[in-house]
């Protein structure tokens, strides 16, 4: 099973480091120079299913924002990264979630990663706010540190598990008919479109 994951996050939140740390399991050490650092394949086992993750890194700068849809298309999952020491980077996460739901639809699985947890003392993004938001949009949330290799496995495993489950459901649904929405998913979705939008409006003033 081949699964596409887009990696979204503002510049300097550590997307590239996460990708590298997770897939090559090395962090800015003895890296070969010719490697492509913005795309990676990783085989992963979810239960009995062999899944291959194709992780697509995206440019996080505002000037490239409009290009997002070219990358999101057909994505099974998205990992949204923010920097816990930078509140603005979390505001961006809200923006991306909205956009993903609008463009890719409700089928895309979202995991939010609060990176740089090793810099806890400089935290600017409140934990309560983040968790509430994640819940409201049906996303899982993890704290990660690419530097100390914390939370990465969990993060990707959760995403892969969700994606595999959904793909299976899709196949099953495809046989039974076109009734795509599966219980849990569709519930999350409804919350997202209304509550998520309002919350992001309220949250951005912090």
């Amino acid at each position: 099973m081949r699964l596409k994951v887009v990696l979204l996050g503002e510049g300097r939140v550590g997307k590239t480091s996460i990708l590298f740390r997770y897939i090559r399991n090395e962090f800015q050490e003895k890296q070969q120079s010719t490697l492509q650092a913005s795309y990676m394949d990783k085989r992963i086992k979810v239960g009995s299913v062999d899944a291959q993750l194709s992780v697509w890194d995206t440019a996080g700068q505002e000037r490239f924002h409009a290009l997002g849809p070219i990358y999101y298309r057909d994505a099974d999952g998205a990992l949204l990264v923010y920097d816990i020491t930078n509140s603005e980077s979390f505001t961006k996460v809200r923006k991306w979630v909205k956009e993903l739901r609008k463009i890719v639809g409700n089928d895309i699985n979202i995991v939010i990663a609060g990176n740089k947890i090793d810099l806890e003392r400089n935290r600017q993004v409140s934990e309560a706010e983040v968790l509430e938001y994640a819940k409201s949009v049906g996303a899982s949330h993890f704290y990660t540190s690419a530097k100390q290799n914390l939370g990465l496995e969990e993060c990707f495993n959760e995403l892969a598990t969700k994606m595999v489950a959904q793909n299976k459901a899709k196949f099953a649904g495809g046989v039974a008919g076109l009734g795509v929405p599966k219980g849990g998913k569709s519930k999350l979705v409804v919350v997202d479109d209304t509550g998520g939008g309002k919350k992001s409006g309220g949250g951005s003033c912090c």
């Binding site: 990696l7 510049g11 300097r12 997307k15 590239t16 990708l19 590298f20 800015q28 050490e29 003895k30 890296q31 120079s33 010719t34 490697l35 492509q36 650092a37 913005s38 890194d57 995206t58 440019a59 996080g60 700068q61 490239f64 290009l67």
Partner: peptide, 21 residues
Amino acid sequence: TTALTSALPPGDLPGADDFLP
């Protein structure tokens, strides 16, 4: 990627933020 890496401190790699531009 090779060309960008040449401008980076050793061990650093360009991600999409650098690669796309």
